[in-house]
Write a protein that binds this DNA or RNA. Sequence first.
DNA 1: CGTATGATTGAGGACTTTCAAGCCAAGTGG
DNA 2: CCACTTGGCTTGAAAGTCCTCAATCATACG
Lengths: 258, 258
Amino acid sequence: MEIGPRQAALRLFLLRLEVRSQISASEREAVLSLSGQPQKVVAHHDFVRLGDELEDACLVVDGLVARFAQLEDGSRQIVSLHVPGDMVDLYSLMLPRAPSPLQALTNVTIIKVPHRILRELAFEHRGLSSAFWRDCVVDGAIVAQWLVNVGRRNARGRIAHLLCEMAVRYAQIGALANGSFPLAITQDQLGEALGLTSVHVNRSIKTLREEGLIQMIRGSATILDWAGLTSVAEFDPGYLHLPFAPERHGMANVRQVR
Amino acid sequence: MEIGPRQAALRLFLLRLEVRSQISASEREAVLSLSGQPQKVVAHHDFVRLGDELEDACLVVDGLVARFAQLEDGSRQIVSLHVPGDMVDLYSLMLPRAPSPLQALTNVTIIKVPHRILRELAFEHRGLSSAFWRDCVVDGAIVAQWLVNVGRRNARGRIAHLLCEMAVRYAQIGALANGSFPLAITQDQLGEALGLTSVHVNRSIKTLREEGLIQMIRGSATILDWAGLTSVAEFDPGYLHLPFAPERHGMANVRQVR
DNA sequence: CGTATGATTGAGGACTTTCAAGCCAAGTGG
DNA sequence: CCACTTGGCTTGAAAGTCCTCAATCATACG
């Protein structure tokens, strides 16, 4: 039997909940039977605006979604990135008035899952209530790591750290192979996430490339030297609360001789 | 009847929960009867270390507490600041293995509230469960704002924004009067919070002072021109989810003529 | 094939850091 | 009561990182 995109996204969502929390069989079923029709959003469209009164949370089915803030001069700071299986604004259950807008960085498919249903689930199932709460907390911990990244590292380190994080997160959804994962993000958007200009992002990527650590072409990132990159980034994946074994993705934990 | 420091801190904690969530009378009583003896921590001491297995959450009774991250070179990034009435690591209910260390920036009094008791409370009282969850989410939203601050604003703007935020938070606990509040933080620590060096913090504070916007002396910050400062900071208090009326604290919303 | 979006590179300037020194207020001990 | 110490604040000069402006290049697409 073929499974649709909705089912696939729900499985990813469930899988991540299970990695971080204890989920019972009935809770598992409840999550997998969540409703909501997939809908498409074109690249660069802000599909949630600041202050919107939300009645649904967005589950990413396909593509890359960003949560961001915008200043008066129009410049943006991306505050989090979301891959398929992420419930982008699960926190909106607690803050239905959107505290940050959401943008589709690429063409995206999302499912709007009604708050009402999520609340019912959390009400009926203690385990899911905790799991949702915990996921919100982990999301916060990731933002905190980004703050450390932007506050303390130089451009090269910031990019390295982001790439490490995204590699682990793409591994979790089975989209990391031979060190490559589909990071469909422009250098402009990377700059918005890292507190840099696209020009400087470009130069720093060049440095990392010349060091033999990474490669980035046409929406795909490849990590050539996991040990080297994590060392540059001072990356410790603990904060993601995901299992990760680099050697299972063609990223032998051996620093190349240069 | 005199109330002890524990009772005072619990009242501040409860007050903030009530501002952000619907709390029933029985829930109110339950919060106020939380146990835990006050204990003192001397300035600069890291009283929670990375990876500690926690069995309590820390409620600040007095002083200023910081959550931070430390890099290999010893440099630190402060990720959040906590004033009296804040349950610093409420999130530890969901992540008992400390994801960030905690430091006393000043001499501090805290109460360690057992997770067990908080869990019982959340289990018995739906409203408290939501309130705790929501508070975790708001804490995350504050960190996200800090990320925007560090990622997008220059030193002057960052300091202005932090001062605005802390003014609102001190107002909430009744510690803002005539634009002054007790921000007992060194310029070194300010730098650690804002991704700057203390030298540059110093120069930027000087600028703000010369512009007639603020004054900072001996552990006390004074906002001389609220409108001017919020304008420099592009500050919008919404993300704090606290009530705030500047004119009630001797901070008329009128920009001074310079 | 022209157009558009994103990547790349150069040059100059702005903001921030580093290193170093001096200052000031508060606390300590003789 | 006063030298002495200490932690934190202040300032100067030089260097470094990152930004701005601008032009060129590459790739995809209608």
